[in-house]
Design a protein around this nucleic acid. Structure first.
Lengths: 218, 218
DNA sequence: ACCGAAGTGGATAAGCCTTTCCGGTTGGTA
DNA sequence: TACCAACCGGAAAGGCTTATCCACTTCGGT
């Protein structure tokens, strides 16, 4: 993955940049400017762009491991002997990741055009979710009308809460997520409005990403 | 409210601007540029800024009646003989307003620095909410640990869903809101994480507004 | 019909943003 | 030590944004 033949100073700067970007994106979200990342890394702006020719590539490099963790979280949840406990833990884990890292929340809900590799991880996570949900339904813990798209909606809702409350009320998301989880438990108390179609949700996220590209980039 | 002595053409342009801004802000949120509003109104950019010296003033003028409707919705809900039915209707009304108008969602969750008069309406709404909640609790329909801040969190969550799904899955919000409402019903199924303090939520929203003034939004 | 105040719109300022260019500096090999 | 490709950082290009300036036009009272 890493370029094999970087000069030692270049390799050091590359690491500084990644670390700085991790800090800045976590704090300010993907809306943070490249200049602010360079400043945090104590590196010239050109150095940053030589190593990562576009902001998108920097984002991909920074969030590769976060998206790995995201994909792994499903596997962990699937190993839980209690399907309901596994599902709840999974939701809380992902939402906590969103709360702890604004940039990750942006990547997950595609507020920013995501690179291919991150995209793959997200789909991987989605496929795990499907199994997680089936398992919980089979155990009778999860309401029958629950769909994988509902989980995506939870991420979007949580992103809204995390964004709006910031670090002035940093644990607010836990309450909203807890309320939502309560409502997922079988049996449902009544019929729900239709779930969005998977295609529609995916298209919506794509569109948001593109719109953002148009607005922020060039 | 309106300036009393505007020349007829100026008055006409003012109306065109307001109408255009309503359309554009509803579609694109408050992140839409002043230039795009001027274009939609078929008016020069200078004309727009002469009538509304800052974007904030335009927003205030455009959303005055939406915020009136928002404040009125509480009154309507309080007149409902069934407290629970009134509360649910209120939540659905406000969330539908968010879904129908991105700009309104931004104003409500203060993604944008709000003008004084809109601010007043929002506080007015908040005070009504408090009574609405007390009434529903007294009737035994609403869980005892529910707080007014929970309703604010609902708006934030809903804004996240509406923002992310856009018009590719325009009814997704109904499902999330329905799930949340289910979880509000008394008795709660278990203890919840602490609600955020009113002050904290308010400060969080203010901070978000200031940050947005500095940055861009959407 | 005239005339001044009021109104108009395009050019422009000033400030962000991402990305590129270029002259000076340095790592590491011979 | 001496060399040069690789690397560096700041300046600048070109794109957005909000907001202002100024030469020209139009309304509306006389």
């Amino acid at each position: 993955m890493n370029s094999p033949c970087l000069r030692s100073d270049a390799e050091r700067n590359r690491a500084r940049i990644i670390a700085a970007a991790r800090t800045v994106f976590a704090r300010d979200g993907l809306g943070a400017s490249m200049a602010s990342v360079a400043r945090e890394a104590e590196v010239g702006i050109a150095t940053l762009f030589r190593r990562f020719p576009t902001k998108e590539e920097l984002v991909a490099a920074v969030f590769a491991d976060r998206m790995d963790a995201y994909a792994r979280a499903v596997a962990v949840a699937l190993e839980d002997p209690d399907p309901w406990h596994g599902l709840v833990g999974y939701i809380e884990t992902v939402c906590e990741m969103q709360a702890a890292d604004s940039g990750f929340a942006d990547v997950l809900t595609m507020t920013f055009p995501a690179a291919k590799c991150l995209e793959d991880r997200r789909r991987e996570g989605y496929e795990g979710i499907v199994r997680l949900i089936d398992r919980a339904k089979a155990a009778g813990s999860l309401r029958e009308d629950f769909t994988p798209e509902d989980l995506v909606l939870v991420y979007m809702a949580n992103a809204g809460v995390v964004n709006a409350t910031g670090d002035a009320a940093p644990d607010s998301w836990r309450r909203v997520v807890a309320l939502l989880i309560e409502s997922f438990r079988a049996p449902g108390r009544g019929p729900l409005p239709d779930a969005p179609e998977p295609r529609a949700i995916y298209r919506a996220m794509l569109r948001a990403g593109q719109a953002c590209r148009g607005a922020q980039e060039r």
